[in-house]
Amino acid sequence: MQRRRDPVERAADESEDLYDISTWEPRSVTDRLAYSVYNGLNYGLRAIVLIVATAITLFVLVQPAILVTEDPSIAVFFGLSIIPAAVLAAFIWYSDITTNEPLGVLVATFVLAVLFTAFAALVNSTVGLWFRTIPGIGTILFFYLIVGPVEETVKLLAVRVFAYRRETFDAVIVGAVYGAVAGLGFAAIENATYIASTVAEIQAQSQTGLGPTAAATGITALRALVGPGHVIYSAIAGYYLGLAKFNPKYAGPLVVKGLLIAAFIHATYNVTVGIVPDLLAAVLPIGFGLAFLGYVIAYNLGAGYFLYRKLSRYRRHYREIRDDRAPSPRSELTEFEPPQR
C-alpha cells in the first residue's frame, strides 16, 4: 500500500525540499528529541508490559514449581497434558503450504502466549467475582462477555506483537499457524496451573495419603482434552489476522470478526460442557465420564472442521494459481504498523 501524499508534495518537483511543509524527517535537535521520546515510550511501554506479564507468570508458576520440586514426576503430567494440543498445532503448521516458519519466531510466539496468559487469568479472577453475584445468567454472561473475548484477545496479541511484524508473515494461512502456536502456549500454562492447584487441593483434603502422582492422573486427562480447543479457537482468530494483513482497508473489521467467532465458539464450549454431558448421561445408557469425553471430542471436531475448511480452501487455491518455482508472496503494510525506513 503506497504512502498517501499531500497535494503540495504531489505537485512539487522531486528536488524541492518540503521539510516541515508537507514532509518531515528528524533533522533538528527538537526533531531528534521528539523522535527519541516517541521511540522510548513506544518500546518502553512494550517492555513494561512484558515485565509485568513475566512477574505475574512467575508468581502463578510458584505452586507448580514447588510441586515439581517435591515430586519431579508431576512435570511429566504437565507435558502429557499438552500432547494432544501440540499434535494439533503441528498439523496446522504442516498445513501451511507456503513456507516453513522460522523456529525462533514460533518459539517467541509460544513464550509470549505463556506470558500474556497471566493477563487473562488476572481479568477472569477479578471480574468473575462480580458476575457470580448475578443470579441465573451470571456465569453464562461471564463466559460470553469476559472469558471468551479476553482469552482469545491475549492469544491473538501474542501473535500481533511479534510474528505479525516479521517478513515471514507472508501469507494469510500463516496467521492460523501462529495462532495455533499461541493457543498451545496458552494451554500449556493453563494446564500446569490447573494440575498444580488440583493436586495441592487433593493433598490438603485427602485423609488417605493420596500421593501427588495419583492425584494428577485424572486432572491431566481432563486438561489434555481441553488443550486442543485453545489451539483451534486461536488458529481461527489467527487466520482472520492473516486476512487483515493482506486487506489493509478492512483490517480492523477482519480482526474483530476473527475474535468474535473464536470467542463465541470458546464461550459456547465453556457454557455447554457443564450441561450437555449430564443430559447425555441421563438419556443414554452411558456414564458421565464417557458422555463428557464424547461431547468434548465432538465439539472440538466441529470447531476443527470449521478451521479445516478454511485451511483446505486456501491450500486448494494456492495450488491452482502458483507453482513451486514462483516467488513467495510479500505482505503489505497496514495501519497496524508504521512504514519501515
Results as ranks from 00 to 15, higher is better:
255 V>G: 04
9 E>L: 09
193 T>Y: 14
136 G>V: 02
304 G>D: 03
90 A>W: 15
156 L>W: 04
292 F>C: 02
292 F>Q: 07
289 G>V: 03
6 D>N: 13
237 A>F: 10
149 P>E: 04
94 Y>V: 06
302 G>L: 15
236 I>L: 09
29 V>L: 14
262 A>P: 08
146 I>V: 15
286 I>N: 07
305 Y>V: 14
289 G>L: 05
308 Y>L: 14
302 G>T: 08
67 L>K: 00
300 N>D: 15
275 I>T: 10
180 A>G: 10
46 R>H: 05
101 E>P: 06
338 P>H: 13
266 H>E: 02
315 R>G: 15
310 K>N: 11
19 Y>D: 08
83 I>D: 05
124 N>D: 14
4 R>T: 10
30 T>P: 00
95 S>F: 07
264 F>D: 07
208 T>D: 07
182 A>K: 00
78 F>P: 04
117 T>E: 04
219 I>C: 09
38 Y>S: 09
274 G>H: 01
315 R>L: 03
229 G>D: 12
61 L>F: 15
99 T>P: 00
78 F>V: 02
64 P>K: 03
124 N>I: 13
264 F>R: 07
44 G>M: 12
45 L>E: 08
16 E>W: 04
172 V>W: 04
317 H>I: 04
33 L>A: 09
44 G>N: 09
91 F>E: 11
102 P>T: 01
168 T>M: 06
143 F>V: 01
169 F>E: 03
225 L>P: 11
167 E>T: 11
301 L>G: 04
58 L>Y: 14
93 W>P: 00
122 L>F: 15
44 G>R: 10
17 D>R: 06
314 Y>K: 11
170 D>L: 05
11 A>R: 10
308 Y>H: 12
120 A>I: 06
315 R>D: 14
196 A>F: 04
237 A>D: 03
245 K>E: 02
249 K>N: 00
146 I>P: 12
67 L>A: 05
81 S>H: 08
